[in-house]
Nucleic acid binder design. Structure first.
Lengths: 346, 346
DNA sequence: GTATTTTGCACAATCGATTGCATAAACGAC
DNA sequence: GTCGTTTATGCAATCGATTGTGCAAAATAC
């Protein structure tokens, strides 16, 4: 007899109907040893018939884990991050995990607080991209002490013994800069991000290395940095380099937002792109193909990074490796996408 | 004495230390009646000292609710939606709620499945923007039968007895179209979305109403529809209207993506914007200020919608109204943002 | 002073699933 | 047929917080 719709079916209901104990039902459903074939079959059949759905709360309480992956990112509403989350959500749900989201708003304090709350939720694992501010990682101890797997994505910490999913920022930046050089640029500026974050350090190093490699002079007045690489900061940096007596003929920007600002600034000043100034960004946000001239950029495999992060999480949770002593560093492929903003060949 | 770090503090630990019962501790911490002032104070003090954090799982199991709000959206990685989610996350976390995310990918089946899973998680409430496909709402019964508050956002169902947070699509569309008319357009096309969704029906009605109101002819060959209003569909519709012997001099697009396609198409064909063709989009996505000419649009208060949805949820949960018999329909303000793509005055 | 009400708290059950241990049944070996 | 082993299952405790009921002490009334 079908149970009352309003009241959820429990293992006890199934047990009662089948004249077995709740523990038997539990073991049967969880594919555990020591259950007769017939019993197992009967339990599964009835569970399906009655639409049994396990109570996650009860299970979580008992096992002290929730089959929930916590995601902690600086901002949800950014193209790269929302795609990252989308990738995580797909992969996680495909493996039977829920996904809980929190934003740090690039503040270490909020990051800390959110980690506490996520911990309270007994998340099975944490996937995190660091707040811009964060340089101290002590707030992760709570998570790690409790053997909750942590996977760092994109904005990773300066630590060895942890799991990271990232791109090769150095190489991507090197390639981007080398591309500008190949287009004939000789004075190339860099709009970089906060040196708190390794990704921006690496992009800067890649930039510098490409310059050195080509035998170009390094002018520190062109090697710039902004806290958030916002549109406003992009404009400010543009003003700054074009007030120099000897302005650059190329810019490698560590994100697309600031690159767009540079394009707009140049257009206002009637600086021709790419003839007088070649520009390349980073991330390959949708805006790249909307701005005119279209913006060259580096593709950032956001969704794949999310999926890979989940893969790491799952293999940790399946006990293939110990959470606290493993150090994986995964590097995903980027691609240089050449568009009109830097293409002088035509 | 501080407890062992690895083991979490429970109300029983506190109770033992204070020589009271666990129930007293629980009531003291939850601001319930029937506890002496001194006891209450002592409990709170020790809880703070020992860093007590309630076990959400236990609480959820007992109370059959999780202080978690489920969000179900078609896609996470879209500007409007990621901002909506961001708004929800902020408001929810501010009120002590977690936020769990799921994507329907615009498929009714996935929507259905996700609702089941979210239900299994015993979400306290659901905030949802419908999948494009969805016209049948029977999968919400499970949620509503169990008195879980549901708030529909943006893509709302065609039902009276539910809670909706939306914008006045009719008015916004009317205003957008009227603006084009004021600019001198007399043959105005409409790129609309699937008639499955009320928001697109309303935008179309607003468009038609503005035309009628101005005494303009309605040409059904200009009144178009696309399933997803993607960039490709935008291009296709543009081709379509410009293959007419009498092409339009204005387009009102129900989203920015298709409007951008129209701009690009026009530019390829050397159609001047806004002189020969004035264009206005909808949503005010970031791309609007990046494309050249900048795209006029309707601001969609994404983040505020998220916050309002959470407000509705909270007031329902606080029992100010019954979940199943209340029908709130909140309309947030939109704004017409006039930019170069439609501004003929200069 | 006793009688009555109020206050403050403890006890124990409960939410639903999981799991170590105990035991009964089935099976095989001789 | 007896004994030993394996297999299948039940029992009961447990996870941590919540809550209805009951009782003793304190407060109030008379």
């Amino acid at each position: 007899m079908k149970k009352n719709k309003a009241k959820a079916v429990t293992i006890h209901d199934l047990a009662e109907e089948l004249k077995v104990s709740a523990s038997t039902v539990s073991r049967a459903l969880n594919e555990q040893e020591g259950i007769g074939k017939k019993t197992r079959k009967a339990v599964k059949k009835l569970a399906k018939e009655w639409g049994y759905r396990p109570n996650r709360m009860a299970s979580s309480l008992r096992t002290n884990t929730s089959r929930t992956i916590g995601i902690l990112v600086p901002w949800i509403n950014r193209p790269f991050i929302s795609s990252l989350i989308s990738g995580i959500e797909n992969a996680a749900r495909g493996s039977g995990y829920q996904v809980i989201i929190a934003q740090s708003h690039d503040s270490s304090d909020q990051e800390k607080e959110n980690i506490q709350t996520l911990y309270d939720t007994r998340i099975s694992a944490l996937i995190i991209s660091l707040a811009m501010e964060t340089t101290d990682y002590s707030h992760f101890e709570l998570i790690q002490e409790n053997d909750i797997p942590v996977v760092f994505v994109d904005r990773i910490p300066n630590l060895g013994n942890c799991i990271k999913v990232q791109i090769n920022n150095f190489k991507a930046a090197f390639d981007a800069t080398a591309h500008l050089i190949a287009q004939g640029c000789t004075r190339i500026a860099h709009f970089g991000g906060s040196s708190n974050q390794i990704i921006y350090q690496d992009r800067r190093l890649g930039y510098l290395s490409a310059l050195k490699n080509a035998g170009l002079d390094i002018d520190e007045r062109l090697n710039l940095q902004a806290q958030h690489l916002s549109a406003e900061e992009g404009t400010r940096l543009s003003e700054q380099i074009f007030s120099l007596e000897n302005p650059p003929d190329g810019i490698f920007c560590a994100n697309d937002t600031s690159a767009i600002s540079a394009i707009k600034y140049a257009q206002e000043k009637n600086i021709r792109i790419p003839e007088d100034l070649a520009i390349i960004g980073f991330n390959d946000d949708p805006i790249c193909t909307v701005i005119s001239p279209q913006l060259s950029s580096i593709t950032h495999p956001a969704s794949s990074m999310g999926m890979e992060a989940v893969n790491q999480v799952i293999s940790l949770l399946n006990g293939k490796s110990q959470a606290h002593d493993s150090a994986v560093s995964l590097s995903l492929e980027t691609n240089l996408v050449i568009r009109a903003s830097s293409d002088r060949r035509r």
